[in-house]
Computed example of a mutant assay.
Amino acid sequence: MTDPGTGLTWQRTTAGAMSRPEVDRYCAALPLGGHAWRLPTVQELATLVDDGRVTPAMDTAAFPDTPRAGAYWSSTDYAADGSQRWFLSYNDGITSHRQLDEAYVRCVR
Rank of each mutant, 00 (worst) to 15 (best):
F63E: 07
G5T: 05
S83M: 01
V108E: 00
T14M: 02
S96A: 14
L30P: 00
T55P: 00
A61T: 15
R25Q: 13
L48A: 11
L30A: 08
L30D: 14
D65R: 06
V54C: 05
V105M: 01
L32H: 02
R25S: 12
T2L: 07
F87A: 14
A79D: 09
G33Y: 03
L32S: 07
L88S: 00
A69G: 00
S89F: 05
L39R: 04
R85D: 00
A36D: 10
Y104K: 00
R12S: 08
E22N: 05
R25G: 03
S89H: 04
A46L: 10
G52K: 13
Q84C: 06
G16I: 06
Y26D: 05
P21R: 13
L32Y: 03
P21F: 14
S75Y: 12
L39W: 14
P56T: 09
D92K: 06
I94C: 00
T13K: 04
R68Q: 14
A15M: 04
R68P: 02
W86Q: 04
R20N: 08
A79H: 04
D59E: 08
P31V: 08
Y78E: 15
T66G: 02
E44L: 04
L45G: 06
T14N: 13
R85S: 06
G5R: 14
Y72N: 03
A36E: 11
